[in-house]
Design a protein around this nucleic acid. Structure first.
Length: 935
RNA sequence: GCGAGCGUGGCGGAACGGCAUACGCGCCGGGUUUAGGACCCGGUCCUUUCGGGGAUGAGGGUUCGACUCCCUCCGCUCGCACCA
């Protein structure tokens, strides 16, 4: 059988054999253990001295039961290539992988099977570890905690207690321990500390904590049986997970005071090497805007309506006010009857439309109630289709515009949101498009107070009468109709007028300059089983008390039924945490060490959201086995303590642009304020890898058919004989287009998969998966193998003679190019450069009967970060005993980068008209000749 | 609606303002082979009277020279979306 595949060809079988062998050897030799300077993980520290620390981090995965598909490891391979490259440049590289293992899917699976989530979670982690190991990822296996490990969440709870026991000192602009607050409160005469009893004092102190209980309206999702953070609710009021209705209702829940950090979270983005688009998403989410608060007195009431506006300069043009339907003042303001004839002349007849959309024959209380029901009951679909159509109802109340004492009606309308600003606005229809539309709908007066530009009036074919305008004028201009006895904005430009009116408001105690944020405090509790228990108990006054650090972790109790209480789908339903079923656990006898001795306390039954564990996992990687501290200062400073952000490279999906990345920055800053970490930011350089999409196929009914059954014939696609339509989408079970790494390992080996994923395009771009294309990089590895190893005998087939000059030139250009591409994650072009070099070497080898060791060895070294197994194997067969991992990456010799001869394209009027080849040292002569030439 | 990004062969994609289409897939031809290809060699943007000419979404501009910089438009993707 001489025609069989040669015995020593690099095929899938050989690749698999090589890969398994080297993975075992890396484990046995602890190749990727990164030594800490001191402590439990300091083995090998002397070897690492003189090596700079580099911390490379992936966004750690949720251990799903489905295992990996080929889209998952894209970023992991990228970081591994980068990490291996850094090792070959003399760095001490920390690269590890943990698991974000709390969360809904494990819990739901447990519900279905009756198996404890811990069992399924551990099984899933084992599967993922196997798959990641098979990719040849060089992780330090000691440093991969799961957030569900009690030894891990003990410290999550510890960090929670740090937050609970802190307050924000706005003067110092940082968090401080709560014990430092008491003397400050006691010294403040306005507080009246001496007059407060112990209970009142504790209530006051609790109100300052960075983690606090609040009964504010929260996002309640009955279908999921839990409350959700703002970040987990979509714009149309549904749950991000499952797309179920979400209701705003007041519930007593844990909050984190992230708003205290809004400015720093915003400002410190400037310190980071992140893409502008991600920074922008965070800026938009924080939503800082400057303006003024203005207080409007209400006719016949002591209450004032406080509003936030970015346009205080238009205050004279405020002709009505609007409260959000849920605004607490509404109930107070609504009179028993419509004001009717008691109104001023121009308002003596209330237009029927003001009394609500359900007919005029009801009083204001009923009209308001009906409108509130209408607004609350709007489905997302209705909201979408209504678009910007303005609805609302008159409350029957009037406010006084403080600048001109005009009486203006107060409406409620759902275009004003309770969640932003004060939940109330002054409406300036002439200069705000939404107010303009509402005023038109309800026949409200429109007063122009900023003179539009001539161009604008020309374009809109109108003059200064806003009654004729097609839309509001929102641009710059000078003030008009804006003067009272005290202050005049007439003739002043917008910016100038803002300052003038804000000063006037401040002087008269009617308002002040204000900064407002879209960012809300972070709702931090969930009604779930599979999450971190809070280290909190409640005393006989129902007040929260911290569980002492010495009693951590507060472990999850065993229960049989994990199912969240799925309650009736309505806003009125109440959440019921699953932990309430652990009856023996819900109360506990404790001595909190506060001198009160052992008492019975009631436990907090909510659990933390999944984000909690991911807020600080990178810190635990640094010192995962430390039982005394969440991380030792030595380890923290060694790996993180350089630059404003500690982590040298953080790679993950763009879907975490706000949620995880904002929460983690927030926690890191608190830990920084409290002296537990040494950098103000965690992630110095952020890189978002793209998403791999795969073809999916639908039949005529639009149903997905298993992608593996589809064949291509003449450019069309068929499942059996039935024609199907191709689209590209997220890889997974739902589109029936799953491609697993295991399939690719079997057919090509891990090195080919790595190389393919790195070569298919820029790492930050999304691109379609194409299994067919893998053969390209596979052939490259085969050719490269063949340039070193005789396929028939398995012997080395290189020569010891020096390489020719042209080969050297190409080699050194390749080295220089690789050294540009690797640090910038330009792996696709790095691979193409290696292929180009190898193609040349293949030709030379055929011509000369073997390629020179001079070029083969650097080529294998350059391949090592990308395809480490085959590189190790060839390196070893080339006669090296040690792993290639810590060999030096080749350095280009500048002497070979300059060329002796250069081909000049000769252009005439920008068109290439010919080429000439001249000696490089004639360069100057060419330039001079060109200068002399009369073109 | 607002904001950001992107448009290059049949496909994935290369290209400091200086030879457009590197590298790979696919396809075509040839070799080796009983055969097969995950082997080897060569070819593969359009057009051509074989001298050339034309192509980077469309149109304009800057420049000796534009895929690259500027303007307008078209298309796609992503984010936010009544944020006062």
């Amino acid at each position: 059988m001489t025609n069989d595949i040669p015995q020593h060809r690099y095929d899938a079988r050989l690749a698999n054999e090589i890969e398994a062998r080297w993975q075992d050897r890396w484990d046995a030799e602890r190749t990727f253990w990164a030594p800490n300077p001191t402590g439990l993980l300091s083995e090998g520290a002397e070897r690492a001295s003189g090596r700079d620390p580099v911390f490379v981090l992936d966004m750690f995965p949720y251990p799903s039961g489905a295992g990996l598909h080929v889209g998952h490891p894209l970023g992991y391979i990228g970081t591994d290539v980068y990490a291996r490259y850094q090792r070959m440049n003399g760095k001490n590289v920390l690269h590890a992988m943990g698991y974000d293992a709390f969360g809904l899917p494990a819990e739901q699976y447990a519900v279905q099977t009756g198996q404890h989530p811990r069992i399924t979670t551990e099984a899933n982690i084992a599967t993922m570890r196997r798959q990641l190991r098979a990719l040849g990822l060089g992780h330090d296996s000691r440093r991969g905690p799961a957030t569900t490990d009690p030894a891990y969440y003990r410290w999550t709870q510890w960090i929670f207690l740090q937050i609970f026991n802190s307050w924000y000192d706005f003067e110092a602009d940082r968090a401080r321990p709560i014990v430092e607050l008491v003397p400050i409160l006691a010294a403040d005469p306005e507080v009246g500390w001496e007059d407060l009893d112990a209970h009142a004092r504790r209530e006051l102190v609790d109100s300052f904590r960075l983690a606090y209980l609040s009964e504010a309206p929260v996002n309640w999702c009955p279908a999921l049986g839990t409350v959700l953070s703002n970040e987990e609710v979509t714009a149309d009021g549904r749950s991000e997970r499952g797309n179920f209705p979400v209701y705003r209702r007041p519930l007593k829940q844990w909050m984190m005071r992230i708003t205290a950090y809004a400015d720093r979270l915003l400002a410190d983005l400037d310190l980071l090497d992140w893409t502008e688009s991600i920074k922008l998403m965070q800026r938009n989410w924080i939503g800082r805007s400057t303006g003024a608060s203005v207080d409007f007195a209400v006719v016949g009431h002591d209450d004032v309506i406080s509003v936030f506006t970015t346009r205080p300069d238009t205050l004279f043009g405020a002709t009505y006010m609007v409260l959000a339907p849920e605004h607490p003042l509404v109930d107070v303001l609504v009179p028993g009857e419509w004001p009717g004839a008691t109104l001023g002349e121009e308002l003596s007849d209330i237009p029927a439309a003001w009394k609500g959309i359900f007919g005029a024959e009801v009083g204001p209380a009923a009209a308001v109630r009906r409108y509130r029901e209408f607004a609350a009951g709007k489905s997302d679909l209705e909201r979408q289709s209504e678009g910007k159509d303005k609805t609302g109802v008159f409350t029957g109340a009037f406010a006084i515009n403080p600048v001109n004492d005009e009486r203006i009606p107060v409406f409620i309308a759902d275009y004003v949101l309770m969640g932003y600003g004060t939940g109330a606005i002054m409406a300036v229809p002439a200069h705000d498009q939404r107010d303009f539309e509402f005023a038109r709908e309800f026949a409200l007066p429109i007063t122009c107070v900023i003179q539009p530009t001539d161009v604008w009036m020309l374009e809109h074919r109108c003059d200064l009468d806003p009654g004729e305008w097609p839309e509001a004028y929102g641009g710059d201009g000078v003030g008009m109709n804006s003067a009272n006895a005290d202050v005049s904005l007439d003739g002043r430009h917008v910016a100038d007028a803002k300052v003038a009116i804000t000063d006037w408001l401040t002087t008269n105690q009617l308002g002040e300059s204000t900064i407002n944020y879209k960012l809300r405090d972070w709702l931090f509790s969930r009604q779930r089983y599979w999450g971190e228990p809070f280290p909190i108990v409640y005393d006989e006054f129902d007040m929260p008390r911290a569980v002492p650090e010495s009693m951590l972790p507060v472990e999850l109790p065993e229960i049989i039924d994990f199912e969240p209480e799925i309650v009736e789908d309505s806003a009125a339903s109440v959440p019921a945490p699953p932990l309430s079923r652990a009856e023996a656990w819900t109360t506990v006898d404790l001595d909190l060490g506060d001198g009160e001795g052992t008492k019975t306390y009631r436990r907090e039954l909510n659990t933390m959201p999944q984000w909690a564990g991911s807020c600080w996992y990178y810190l635990r990687y640094l010192d995962p086995t430390n039982e005394d501290q969440f991380v030792s200062p030595d380890a923290e400073q060694y790996w993180m303590g350089d630059g404003p952000g500690g982590i040298d490279l953080y790679v993950g999906g763009v879907e975490h642009a706000v949620l995880h990345l904002l929460y983690a920055r927030f926690w890191h800053k608190m830990l920084f304020d409290l002296g537990h970490v040494s950098t103000p930011e965690p992630f110095q350089r952020l890189f978002n890898q793209g998403m791999i999409q795969a073809p999916a196929f639908t039949d005529e009914r639009g149903i997905y058919v298993e992608a593996t059954t589809v064949v291509e014939r003449d450019g069309a696609f068929f499942a059996g004989d039935e024609p199907v339509r191709r689209e590209f989408g997220k890889i997974g079970k739902s589109l029936k287009n799953m491609v697993t790494p295991d399939d690719i390992f079997r057919d090509y080996g891990a090195d080919s998969l790595r190389l393919y994923e790195m070569s298919m395009g820029p790492l930050d771009a999304s691109r379609p998966w194409s299994t067919r294309d893998i053969v390209g990089v596979f052939r490259f590895l085969q050719r490269l193998w063949r340039n070193v190893i005789d396929e028939d005998t398995g012997a080395l087939c290189i020569t010891e003679a020096p390489a020719d000059d042209e080969t050297r030139r190409i080699l050194h250009h390749t080295i220089a190019g690789m050294r540009e591409d690797m640090p910038t994650m330009g792996f696709n072009t790095a691979v193409s450069k290696l292929i180009t070099l190898n193609n040349h070497v293949t030709q030379v080898s055929a011509r000369d009967g073997g390629a020179s060791r001079d070029v083969i060895e650097p080529m294998v070294l350059m391949l090592a970060p990308l395809a480490p197994h085959i590189a190790e194997e060839l390196w070893s067969r080339l006669g090296h005993a040690e792993t290639i991992t810590y060999e030096d990456f080749p350095v280009a010799d500048p002497g070979w980068l300059t060329v002796d001869e250069v081909e000049y394209p000769v252009q005439v009027n920008g068109k290439v008209r010919g080429k000439v080849t001249v000696a490089t040292d004639a360069d100057q002569a060419v330039v001079e000749a060109a200068a002399r030439a009369d073109v």
